[in-house]
Amino acid sequence: MGRVVLFDMSSQDPERAASFYSSVFGWKIAEPNWGYHPVSTGDESRPGINGGISKGPHDFAHGIRIQIEVDDMDEALRKSVEAGAQIVRDKMDFGDFYLCYLVDSVGNGIGLIQNK
């Protein structure tokens, strides 16, 4: 079962977005890595997910996209395309994990992540 493990928030002004969510909701925003500001939304004793804020690319300039963890990205991509999804960013290697972005069959942006 694919579990939602984090969120990505895209903005054309990620520093401003980070400041907003930090000051309004108390989110802990870490220093950026690859332009991605890791976000902690609370302690691990309560349900919830963490995520990140980054500058949105041309194909996802603003918005929030969930990341779904999968055991086999190639299989998940194949099944997604068969079910009507479009690949926005194919499988990318980030050292400890693989990541890709899709638009599902009804237009929602999602990401898939597979830990190595």
Rank of each mutant, 00 (worst) to 15 (best):
M9D: 01
V88I: 15
G84H: 13
R89L: 14
S11M: 01
R65P: 01
D96K: 08
A18N: 00
F25P: 13
L77E: 04
Y98V: 00
E82K: 03
I110H: 13
E82F: 12
K79A: 10
E15T: 04
F97N: 06
A61H: 09
L6R: 01
G52Y: 15
L99T: 02
V4W: 14
D8C: 08
Q67P: 00
S40H: 11
T41E: 09
E75K: 02
A61T: 10
M73S: 13
V88P: 02
Q86E: 12
R46S: 11
M1R: 08
I68A: 04
G95E: 06
Y98K: 06
D90W: 14
P38R: 08
P14N: 07
V4M: 15
I49Q: 03
K28W: 11
E69K: 12
A30Y: 09
Y101N: 07
P57H: 05
Q67V: 11
E31F: 13
I64V: 12
Q12N: 00
M1Y: 03
Y21R: 00
I64N: 02
S80Q: 07
I53S: 04
E82V: 07
G63Y: 10
S22G: 03
V4Q: 04
C100Y: 08
G51Y: 14
F20I: 01
D93Y: 15
C100A: 15
F60H: 12
I64R: 09
N108K: 08
G84V: 11
L102D: 07
R46Y: 08
G84E: 05
A85R: 03
D8V: 06
R78Q: 05
D90C: 12
E31R: 06
R46F: 15
A85Q: 00
R46W: 11
I66G: 02
E15M: 05
V106L: 13
I64F: 14
D59R: 09
P47H: 10
S40Y: 01
G95H: 04
S10G: 02
E69L: 07
V24Y: 11
S54L: 15
F25R: 13
A18E: 00
P47R: 10
K91A: 03
I53K: 04
Y21T: 02
G2T: 02
K55F: 01
G48A: 15
I66D: 05
V24S: 08
N33Q: 03
S10D: 06
I53R: 07
D71L: 07
V81Q: 04
R89P: 01
G111R: 08
M9C: 14
Y98L: 03
G84D: 06
D74E: 12
V39Y: 07
S19L: 13
P57N: 04
V103W: 05
K116H: 14
Q114R: 12
S45M: 09
D72I: 03
V24T: 15
S10E: 05
F20L: 11
K55L: 00
N115E: 12
V39I: 12
I29H: 01
G42K: 08
E82Q: 15
G56H: 05
K79R: 14
A17N: 00
G63H: 09
F7G: 00
S23H: 01
S54N: 02
A18P: 02
D71F: 02
S54I: 00
F7P: 00
E69I: 07
S105R: 10
N108I: 15
D43I: 03
L99W: 14
D74I: 06
I66L: 10
R16G: 10
G35M: 10
S45G: 04
L77T: 02
S19N: 07
R3M: 03
